[in-house]
């Protein structure tokens, strides 16, 4: 079965919140290498609200739930991450209005729409050393799994691709966000946005009982 019920999406969001909260200082420390060191705290501030208000969030359908998440993220995640992550959730929400389950194809469409929205909002493109450098290859990988429809295999491959993105972008110079202001100094540091996507997908594998062994240092070394 390739259908993804709303309950799984709820689990994924709660797992994401737990991941972000556990890695608050770790993500900020990574950001401090080239950026302004607020990424972990900014993200955690927003996801802490989602965690605390989880019971009151409208879960009548996937779209309604994601729209509320989008608003909470936009409102409470600090800095530029708020509108960027919030836009991602908003675009996903718009494609799932009234739905209580989605197919793998629909998940790929949601991610595609989220990527387009994030690009439009922040102006970044592939190779600018932002979280898009993880999301875009993950989207391609996800699309490749749609025909076969094996959710577990898709998630495992996506987690692997996101991990690779950390290594593939490590030597790049950031062109967007605060890290772009330090120019060459951003080379040879991992982008915390990319790391966060890899860590979140790795934690989704754990949550859904999918065997996945991380190999890239930033994912291996995340706090337990």
């Amino acid at each position: 079965m390739s259908a993804i019920p709303q309950a799984d999406i709820e689990r994924a969001i709660r797992t994401t919140a737990a991941t972000v909260l556990r890695n608050e200082h770790y993500f900020s420390d990574l950001d401090g290498l080239a950026g302004d060191g607020d990424f972990g705290t900014s993200l955690a501030t927003g996801f802490r609200v989602i965690d605390n208000e989880w019971g009151e969030i409208d879960k009548s359908n996937i779209g309604a739930m994601l729209l509320k998440i989008s608003m909470l993220v936009s409102k409470h995640v600090g800095g530029s991450s708020g509108p960027i992550w919030g836009t991602g959730f908003m675009k996903a929400a718009m494609l799932t209005r009234g739905k209580e389950e989605i197919s793998l194809d629909e998940l790929a469409e949601m991610l595609g729409a989220a990527i387009e929205g994030i690009q439009a909002r922040g102006g970044a493109k592939l190779g600018d050393k932002t979280l898009l450098d993880a999301l875009i290859p993950v989207h391609e990988t996800l699309k490749g799994h749609c025909a076969a429809g094996d959710k577990a295999a898709a998630l495992k491959d996506c987690a692997g691709v996101a991990e690779q993105a950390i290594d593939e972008t490590r030597t790049l110079v950031a062109h967007r966000g605060r890290a772009s202001q330090v120019g060459e100094r951003s080379a040879n540091t991992p982008d915390p946005g990319i790391v966060s996507i890899a860590v979140i997908l790795n934690d989704w594998c754990k949550e859904f009982g999918i065997a996945n062994t991380p190999t890239v240092a930033e994912v291996v070394n995340q706090p337990a």
């Binding site: 729209l67 936009s74 509108p83 836009t87 908003m90």
Partner: peptide
């Protein structure tokens, strides 16, 4: 950014 998102929603 805030009004962009709100207008889209």
């Amino acid at each position: 950014m805030a009004w962009d998102m709100a207008t889209e929603m």
